[in-house]
Design a protein around this nucleic acid. Structure first.
Lengths: 351, 351
DNA sequence: CTGTTAGCGCCTTCAT
DNA sequence: ATGAAGGCGCTAACAG
């Protein structure tokens, strides 16, 4: 059978409680006994039973990181950074090590709730929700309720790249790192306007997501301030095909378009492909802008003008927040700035 | 306090044992009582205590998916597919739902082992290791030993896109889905040779990884069969910068290069960037080929010739294997074919 | 500083 | 088909 703590205790000629104490290091133990116990652990190749200690301690070392699409580097980068921050923490042998795991919801609200329940069932130490959320009152309420349960059971809740829960959810005490999508989008469009563009198409993300809405609002605000008319806008998923298809349609709606703003860089890639296939040059005929500044964006041809989000930093910070290794921002909310990166895909409109 | 099974039992006016039985569905229960219990569960918003049931049942519903780099779509796609396959399984209410979680090792052997231990500690139901492994005898032995422990404790082990453990590890009973990197690489180089290339540079992955070695061997085999000399070869990480830097160096080593083969598509992007920056046209002056056929590869300019690996299918299959929902391949090993995809980045060498 | 004593919440024979 | 009872392996008060 598997080795238990009692076996170690017997081998080291101490009580189980003592073994538990040296393993968890939360209690004074004589150096000599500690030594003896550690040796017994090694000799027996003992591995603690996680469920048993979670049960007894009423808490586990699981940290869940929820992402909308694990195949998308936008989430991969944040999740990787968070996991890194969490993994490093417990470097010191037994005890500290948390098990940071990422859960892929695929953007499905049901799966999001399912994972939250599963994590609740595991008595997770913390939960990090990344990326925008669905704007559906029922779902939002369900998630908030779930998070409240978790928080009340001692699970730390962190939102990363996600808007705050709302005033009625302060009791959840969620630490929030929100991306300033609105300002980023506004400045991006201002950049286009300053180049002289007045007919700008927009390929937005899915209609019911906060990220989509905030970026769109920023875009519209810039247009409004400049007194420019809003161009055609189409919604679709955050993928390449969406950008391609939408661009074809956008050009049909307004053949005189001089710029296209995409929901994110992946979509922008599709926009570029469609433009190229129609024989239009970038940015000679049409300028293109993305969002997120994912690693491949600099390698697009021409390199993509986009809005940089500090995904890695935000993820790492979320990880530390989840560990309680960093104090929550004032008011529980930090707004992460978004910075426009001008590259080759945007230029002056044709005469 | 949190609701326990006993609370549900009291509410439904049955014994705890009965509640357990309807929740796990592994035992006959009268329809009427089941109904009553289920209602009580709903009314009380009961969530089973995972650690407690794991402890009692000596097994958990955790499935760990280990990846080398979660920010890399190569792993993201496999992990997402596996997680999808596992998540779908338990659709039927309580019970079945497994918690599929991905663990990011960052390519570090220590973290790989740490995660395996953590998973062992959680009494994970299954473990999926994805991607190539480090070719270090000590590490390999350690991992094999760990997997043996896990297997012996009832954890299912699946390798996805990773070579088999070796003859001395048959007792682990790991189901293996190995990518045919060697054949894919060979055919890719054959394609280049058939176009007339004879001076081919190679930007390989990290020197001590199986994937790197297999791809390189396939490349060399094609060269040998054709009686062509091997061009300069450089090693580096699987990232864009490596491709860029290596290309600069490759051109210094052999300015007459007519083609560059990259370790994977991401590296190939860097290769293309370096070539462009040097004023060389692709494929006019130099042809470029990648590996993996990641989503962005079709959008490179020109679109990348590469080797397609059915990442999604393999990941999904690994997920089913981990659940025991699919029979292991004969001999425990399936070799996943790799197919060359010819696109615009390769052409005839200049005169 | 260390041992003793109770559970943590659930599953699982064993009876009924 | 259902109830009763013991124990899974560990932690957390209490004593000493």
């Amino acid at each position: 059978m598997t080795v238990t703590l009692a076996d170690v205790a017997a081998r080291a000629r101490v009580s189980p409680a003592t073994v538990s104490r040296v393993l968890n290091g939360n209690y004074p133990v004589a150096a000599a006994t500690r030594e003896r116990v550690l040796r017994a652990v090694d000799e027996l190749d003992y591995v603690p039973n996680g469920p048993a200690s979670s049960l007894a301690a009423a808490t586990s070392d699981l940290v869940g990181i929820l992402v909308n699409d694990i195949a998308d580097p936008f989430f991969g980068i944040m999740a990787g950074a968070a996991q890194g921050a969490i993994g490093e923490s417990g470097a010191g042998r037994a005890g500290g090590e948390k098990l940071a795991v990422v859960c892929n919801t695929g953007g499905s609200p049901e799966r999001e709730l399912t994972y939250l329940t599963l994590l609740q069932r595991q008595r997770a130490a913390a939960v990090i929700l990344t990326g925008g959320s669905l704007e559906d009152d029922a779902h939002l309420a369900a998630v908030t309720a779930k998070l409240a349960r978790l928080a009340e059971a001692g699970t730390r809740v962190v939102l990363c790249g996600r808007p705050p829960l709302g005033a009625d959810a302060e009791h959840v005490g969620a630490a929030t790192l929100a991306f300033d999508n609105r300002a980023g989008a506004r400045r991006l469009t201002e950049h286009l306007l300053s180049l002289g563009h007045r007919r700008i198409g927009y390929v937005a993300g899915p209609a019911d997501r906060t990220t989509t809405r905030h970026r769109l609002e920023g875009h519209r605000e810039a247009l409004r301030v400049a007194g420019a008319a809003e161009g055609p806008t189409l919604h679709g998923p955050y993928d390449r095909a969406s950008g391609y298809d939408a661009t074809v349609e956008l050009l049909r709606l307004d053949p005189a378009l001089t710029a296209v703003v995409a929901a994110n860089d992946t979509v922008a890639l599709g926009v570029c492909a469609a433009l190229r296939d129609r024989g239009l040059s970038i940015p000679g005929d049409v300028s293109v802008a993305g969002f997120d500044d994912l690693p491949f964006s600099v390698d697009a041809v021409p390199a993509l003008t986009t809005v940089r989000l500090p995904l890695h930093e935000a993820g790492a910070r979320a990880g530390r927040l989840a560990l309680g290794a960093e104090a929550a921002p004032p008011g529980g909310l930090a707004t992460i700035p978004a910075e426009v990166v001008v590259r080759g895909s945007t230029g002056r409109p044709p005469e």
